[in-house]
Amino acid sequence: MITSIAIALFVVSSLCAMIRVIRGPGLADRVIALDVALVALMGAIATKAASTGSTTYLPIVAVVAIVGFTATVVMTRFLEQGSSS
């Protein structure tokens, strides 16, 4: 039950973040929102894994963490440069 609520909350927050991605208005808003959505997704997966003891999805969490981080850094970098030129 608790798990379900937790996952639902993660999904809701993820959806909220996604709405921000769509609505913007700024690029920075979208970048941050996408990151938040990813983190929420990771949280949901991790919670699920913790409750069921299944490790199937765990590599996904690790990979998404690294890759999501990378993506955010790249986009930040891009934003930075866009504003400077």
């Binding site: 991605v21 769509i22 913007g24 690029l27 979208r30 970048v31 996408l34």
Partner: peptide
């Protein structure tokens, strides 16, 4: 870029 990000959210 905005469009790319929104499409990204479709993917996610």
């Amino acid at each position: 870029l905005g469009a790319a990000l929104v499409l990204g959210s479709v993917g996610f």
